[in-house]
Design a protein around this nucleic acid. Structure first.
Lengths: 134, 134
DNA sequence: CGGTATCCCTCCTGATACTG
DNA sequence: CAGTATCAGGAGGGATACCG
């Protein structure tokens, strides 16, 4: 039963590579950061703890579903802590952990790179777009 | 015609915030990096120029469509150059620009953070997951 | 070799309405 | 206040087949 079609072989290569990528810390991190709201939440909390509804207001346009989903995943990853104060009405505070603050430093590095080089990127785009039909 | 429903107001806030996010260099950059293949292409090319099919082999499992799409967008952003040698058969080389090398340094910083802290993240996940039903 | 064109299908997003 | 449950809509990813 030797034979494997080319398609099957490629499929297997793809699966192996997918597994490799999933196991790669860098890609796990990039996956995380690429979540639309993650960097915004981390940036917002870098300044200090916030309540759920404060975050909801600060990140205008986020739906409760996405906010909760984002916060839960960050809590799971140890980026922030969730503290419930069982008063009436309930109060829930979110705060970055040391790990979260470390991440926010990385985000600052990303931000710095972006701000330093975005102009070059925009220039490159204009150049590229203007040459399309020559 | 003063009245705007709550839904309309939120909709507008969302649109404004979306515009803000789209204009934010950091988010533009994160958007870029979050493309599944971008970081892999940049990392591959950091070691030196490569041909199209070399990249296709190195990034096992990438479809020609996605590879081309990724390369084109990076070329447009001035991250890499595309050089066609009109021999037979055709030969196309891709190479990082100085801007691209600069970006690869940032990716190295991301990679370093990931490798340094991924263990803490995994521990946090295990802790979180194991407490789910207590 | 180095792509382009097409279709499909999945996942994610966000709107909405409801609960403790 | 701080969420959860449900549903639909659309963008993007990938497989495939074909061109210069």
């Amino acid at each position: 039963m030797a034979t494997m079609t080319a398609a099957q072989r490629r499929e297997q290569a793809r699966l192996e590579y997918d597994a490799f990528i999933k196991g790669c810390p860098t890609n796990q991190l990039l996956d995380r950061l690429s979540d639309k709201w993650v960097s915004l939440v981390v940036a917002a909390l870098a300044a200090g703890p916030m309540r759920y509804s404060d975050l909801g207001r600060k990140l205008a346009g986020v739906s409760p579903k996405m906010l909760t989903q984002t916060l839960r995943s960050l809590e799971r990853d140890g980026i922030l802590t969730r503290e419930v104060t069982p008063s009436v009405p309930v109060r829930v505070d979110y705060e970055l952990t040391p790990l979260g603050h470390s991440l926010s430093l990385l985000l600052t590095a990303v931000k710095d790179w972006a701000e330093t080089h975005i102009e070059q990127v925009h220039e490159a785009r204009e150049r590229y777009d203007s040459v399309q039909d020559v």
